[in-house]
Each structure stands twice: as structure tokens, then as C-alpha cells.
Simulated scan of single mutants.
Amino acid sequence: METQYFIGIDISKESLNWAVCSSNKIILEHVSGNDIKSITKTVVSLQRQLNFKLGSAVFCMEHTGIYHTRLLKYLLSRKAAIWLESGSQIKYSMGDVRGKNDIIDAQRIARYAYKNRDEIKLYVPPRAIIDQLDNLLDIRDRLVKVRQICLTALNEQKSCEANKTLTKDTKKYSAHTLKGVETDLQTLEKQIKELIDSDPQLKSLFDNITSIPGVGTVTAAKCIVITDEFKKFENAKQLACHAGVVPFENSSGSSLHSKPKVSKKAHKGIKSTLSNCVMSAMRYNTHFKAYYERKLKEGKNKFTVFNAMKNKLVRLIFSLAKQGKKYDENYTYSLV
């Protein structure tokens, strides 16, 4: 069925702004609560006013973490066409625009969907086990931040030679928190591993990725979640761009010439995790260690080499996951 209506939805914690676009014109707007009852009532009302079936409409919205959960749940139950897009993608596609509010944002999302209708990317929900794994990783990230906050306070007082009584108090009341966080982290990582082992498909992917020296449980799990079991990206370069490890040229005519730089538009979580992996790989992976030393001897900047190694690692992970193979120490990979 041909898509006739492009419905843009701006999502906030408590409310939803709806804008319906047809033939590049906003023909209807509505505001509703962000709850199942209000969402159901709104969709039924839109269908009645415009006299259309769900098959002739696309619901486009920004990815907003957990705030779009109820809306997605309802639309999926109705088997509606859903377009879940990055907020930055919509923002930068608008060109030079000024001002914003919830009403305008809904209109812009609707017009974005209409103008890019030939490149529509319908949302396919991940398996339930991937959602569960994603939630466990989010909890782990929050616990790591709590641990870092406590450690930073302790280290700063020590380095500044603060009052011994103050340092003693900080250490006393942080010790229980740190101990509890460490225990929770160990339990959580064990649960992540058990969850992966319970699913043959996940276990196969996990085993192939972690066969690379330097790549651990957390990195493998994050790669699986971010790529939706390596189905979201068509090739390794797309994943590397998403991780922010691909340098891009910035030049124009004869007046602008700068060295290629990585973009700040990246998934910060996987990028920082890759940094830790490369540090570990330089110690335990002979191929990465040889590559790093050779590039430094050639006079390359160490930060440039480090980023190149993250890029190579992403490509290697993607390759092994797609081919269903484990890392072979005796095979000469392209990075060397």
C-alpha cells in the first residue's frame, strides 16, 4: 500500500506532539499524553478524521531512550510502519533553521519523513534477549560512573594533601559504596555472560569476537547490541563511522586544506570501550603490537596510529562476526 500520510511525533517524558504531513503540507496537529490510553485514543482519532488505514501511514520519531517505549509498544502491536531516526540526522537535514519548540519539532519530523520517503528505514525491533542485554549494559555503565565518582574524590584529596580528618571521612564512607559497586559489577558481568551463553546465536557471535586478544565480555556485548547482532550495518566502514574512528577529509579548493580528522558525531560508549581494547591488544596481540611499533618507526603520530588501530579492530570484529570465524593468530590480517 502506498504511503499517503507521514506522521511526525515529538516525544517528551509526559506528552507527545503529533503532526501529519501529506504532499509536503501539514494537514493536522495534535497533543496527547505519553501513556497507552492517550496514544490509543489519538491514533484512532487520526484515523477517523483522515479516514485512512495504518498501512497507508508512516510514524516517524526521534530515538529518545526510554520515553518512546509506550508509543513503540502500541504501534508494534498494531503492526504500524515505524521510522525511528537519530535526532541529529533530522536536525542537520533541516539546513539553516531558527527556533524550536515541541510543535515545530513534530512538524519538522513529519516533513523530514516526507522529503526522505524514498530512503525510508522502517524500524525492526531487536529480539527480546538483545533488549535485556542492552539494559544490563546500561546498568553496568551507571555503576562504573558511580565507582569513578568515589575514586576521583579520594584521589583528589590525597593528591592535594587535604586535611587528614576529611580524607579519613571520605575514605570511610566511600569504602562501603566502592565495595558494593565492585560486587554488583562482578555479579552483573557474570549475568551478562550467562545470558549470552543461554542463546546459541549470541554465544556464537560472542565467541568469535572474544577470540581476538584484547576484546573482552563488555566490548563484545556492546558490539552485539549496537549492531543488533550485526544486522544494522551493511559493512565494517559504516560501523567504524558510527564508532567515530574514521578520519574524514576537510578541504575546499586551494584555500582550505586540513589533515583528516575523526568526527565528533560518534557513539561515545563504544568508542571509549575500543580505546581500552586497543590498549590491551597492544600487550597481548602480536599483530597489533607489530603494527603500532612499525608505524611509530615510520614517524607517525601515536594518537593517529592509536585511532587507526581502533578502526582496524572494528573492521576485524565485523569481519569475524559476519564470516562466523574465530581469530587465527597465524593468519596475516590486513592491518599488518
Results as ranks from 00 to 15, higher is better:
Lys268Thr: 06
Val336Cys: 10
Asn285Ile: 09
Val218Gln: 03
Leu133Ser: 08
Gly269Arg: 07
Glu29Val: 09
Gly180Pro: 06
Lys271Val: 01
Pro213Leu: 14
Lys232Arg: 15
Met61Ser: 12
Gln49Ala: 15
Pro247His: 03
Lys145Asn: 09
Lys310Ile: 00
Ile130Gln: 09
Glu189Leu: 08
Lys300Glu: 05
Ile149Gly: 01
Thr3Ser: 04
Ala221Phe: 00
Ser174Cys: 06
Thr170Pro: 02
Ile36Trp: 12
Ile26Glu: 11
His267Met: 01
Lys193Trp: 06
Gln89Trp: 01
Lys172His: 13
Leu46Met: 11
Asp10Asn: 14
Asp207Gln: 13
Arg315Gly: 05
Glu249Met: 15
Ile196Ser: 08
Val20Ser: 05
His257Asp: 07
Asp199Lys: 11
Gln238Ser: 14
Trp18Tyr: 04
Lys53Asp: 02
Val336Lys: 05
Tyr123Phe: 13
Val44Lys: 15
Val181Pro: 00
Leu54Phe: 01
His267Asp: 13
Gln201Arg: 15
Pro125Asp: 00
Asn17Thr: 12
Thr42Met: 02
Val146Glu: 03
Ser86Gly: 02
Thr217Ile: 13
Asn17Phe: 14
Lys115Met: 14
Asp118Thr: 12
Arg78Ser: 10
Leu84Ile: 04
Leu122Val: 07
Leu136Ala: 13
Met279Arg: 09
Ser86Ala: 09
Asp207Ser: 15
Ile270Phe: 09
Arg98Phe: 11
Gly269Leu: 05
Arg117His: 13
Asn17Tyr: 12
Lys300Tyr: 04
Ile9Arg: 10
Met94Gln: 11
Met279Ser: 06
Gln47His: 00
Asn235Val: 11
Phe6Cys: 07
Ala236Gly: 07
Leu320Asn: 07
Asp328Cys: 01
Val245Ile: 04
Arg48Leu: 08
Asn24Tyr: 13
Thr69Asn: 08
Ile90His: 05
Cys150Val: 03
Val278Cys: 08
Lys171Arg: 14
Glu329Asp: 10
Lys172Phe: 09
Thr187Tyr: 04
Lys91Val: 00
Ala128His: 11
Lys79Phe: 04
Cys223Thr: 07
Lys232Tyr: 10
Ser204Gln: 14
His287Arg: 10
Leu154Gln: 09
Ile196Trp: 06
Lys268His: 12
Leu185Lys: 09
Phe59Ser: 05
His63Pro: 01
Ile139Trp: 07
Tyr74Gln: 08
Ser77Ala: 15
Ser23Gly: 03
Val146Met: 14
Lys158His: 14
Ser263Thr: 15
Asn311His: 13
Lys271His: 10
Asp105Arg: 01
Glu2Asp: 10
Glu293Thr: 03
Lys271Tyr: 02
Asn101Asp: 05
Glu161His: 09
Ser254Phe: 06
